[in-house]
Design a protein around this nucleic acid. Structure first.
Length: 234
DNA sequence: CCAGACGTTGTT
DNA sequence: GTCTGG
DNA sequence: CCAGACGTTGTT
DNA sequence: GTCTGG
């Protein structure tokens, strides 16, 4: 799940919602945000303890990776196993983040082998969601001393809730604001407590609506992609 | 000990 | 980096 | 996640 | 069929 989403809220609105304190970065709305693109992520600075909003690349590259060839494979991390798997356990302990999103897309497989894309999000006017994420820093070993750090992130998934299950069996972990401090590491939380946050979001306020198949092509990135092709919501 | 892997999704 | 398999 | 490519040689 | 790019 969750190989495409939208992040259309203005940088200033995201900064306000997440109370980040670094200089405001600018980024254009993305109606069809794909793996390997740079998107806004909320983290806690390990030294200052302040929340920051930065652009990271979607597709976690573990520190020990020899190259970036496997990057697009770690766009998601299963909540059931993040605490122990080699690619994620270090980030799970020390580099958790929030990924702001306004909706995400799922492709429902139809009996005729075709696929119908759906957008999933909260009712109109709601705040952006915060996906539970992990991030990593990676430096190309081939680049030597002058190499630049590349920062990447992954979105944690869990079982679908009853509303989204008909479309797809997995969904991103959506954290409510009162869980942000624990997830970001601002307040102490045990592995068990953190793991307990990785569960399906309640269906209250959520919406699922079919959208145009143009969303399949990452080159399409316009507001029409978020409109329902039937009559519900947007 | 060294070598090699390290991931998710969907579909069958 | 760290665990697993041989 | 989907869309799109999937190859070599030599020469510039 | 399977990998790469976005």
């Amino acid at each position: 799940m969750c190989g495409r989403y939208s992040i259309t809220s203005a940088p200033e609105a995201i900064r306000r919602l997440f109370a980040t304190t670094n200089d405001l970065i600018n980024f254009a709305p993305r109606y069809n945000f794909p793996p390997t693109a740079q998107g806004p992520v909320v983290r806690r600075h390990p030294d200052t303890g302040k929340r920051t909003l930065d652009l990271l690349r979607w597709g976690l590259v573990p520190v020990w990776a020899k190259d970036m060839s496997g990057a697009a494979k770690c766009i998601n991390a299963r909540g059931e196993t993040v605490a122990t798997l080699a690619s994620f356990r270090s980030a799970f302990k020390k580099r958790r983040c929030l990924v702001p999103a306004d909706s995400y897309f799922e492709w429902k497989a139809l009996p005729d082998k075709s696929k119908q894309p759906y957008a999933i999000g909260y009712e109109e006017g709601a705040d952006p969601m915060a996906f539970a994420g992990l991030w990593e820093g990676w430096k190309d070993p081939a680049s030597g001393e002058g190499g630049e750090w590349i920062h990447t992130f992954s979105i944690i998934t869990t079982e679908a809730n009853p509303l989204t299950a008909p479309v797809h069996n997995r969904m991103p972990v959506i954290l409510a604001p009162d869980h942000w401090p624990a997830w970001l590491g601002e307040v102490e939380a045990s592995v068990e407590e953190l793991q307990a946050l990785l569960k399906p979001a309640p269906v209250e306020g959520m919406r699922v609506w079919p959208v145009d198949k143009r969303v399949g092509n990452v080159r399409n990135d316009d507001i029409e992609l978020l409109k329902s092709i039937t009559s519900q919501r947007k």
